[in-house]
């Protein structure tokens, strides 16, 4: 792959909101191409680096997972505020994905069911401010912040991710088509 004209390494930040980290695993599946990538980019806040917050100027944010609770919203907003380009990364980020299967249920019923006392006689939903509150539904990322690119797939395959990133890093509009384009 051709080196970008800008010698500065691109800063990438990644996160998984209401997701399963499967998209991140798929990212790691680009295998030896990671070395090629490492020559061009550096990772900022990400599960890969364990950096807890974004530095101010990231070039690219990969957001896995839908938005299911207040914490997701805060994390997503931090990435949006600090990245030039934000990518909805994987099926859940694109349309809520499997976590959105709860969307036809009342969130109150979900909570009551989960926090029932063992004998079923009462519910004790915790009120600890440390715990993020659930949103009424699981939402796609683009319904909460502006999104620049969508990369669907559950997860997007390593080849799909690689195609997307190399397009982006070489200044082409990313294009994902058959057989790389998959929703599952």
């Amino acid at each position: 792959m051709n080196a970008p004209m800008n010698p500065r390494k691109l800063r990438i930040t990644t996160t998984s909101l209401s997701g399963c980290f499967g998209c991140h695993m798929s990212f790691l599946d680009i295998d030896e191409r990671l070395l090629e990538l490492a020559a061009l980019v550096e990772f900022d806040r990400s599960p890969i680096t364990d950096i807890k917050h974004c530095s101010q100027h990231c070039d690219l944010a990969l957001v896995e997972g839908g938005v299911c609770n207040a914490e997701n919203v805060h994390v997503l907003r931090e990435l949006r505020a600090n990245a030039k380009i934000l990518v909805a990364f994987g099926a859940c980020a694109v349309n809520g994905g499997l976590p959105a299967q709860r969307n036809h249920l009342d969130v109150g019923q979900c909570l009551s069911q989960v926090y029932r006392t063992p004998d079923g006689s009462a519910t004790a939903i915790p009120d600890d401010p440390e715990l993020p509150l659930l949103l009424d539904k699981v939402y796609p990322v683009n319904e909460v912040v502006r999104v620049d690119y969508f990369l669907p797939g559950c997860p997007p395959s390593a080849d799909t991710i690689w195609k997307f990133l190399t397009d982006l890093l070489t200044g082409r509009t990313p294009r994902i088509e058959h057989p790389l384009l998959k929703f599952d």
Binding site: N103, P140, Y149, F150, E177
Partner: peptide, 15 residues
């Protein structure tokens, strides 16, 4: 959707 390269549903989901 694959053939027309639809990457996302774009509009607000009705769920």
């Amino acid at each position: 959707a694959y053939d027309l390269e639809m990457l996302a549903p774009h509009f607000r989901h009705a769920y």
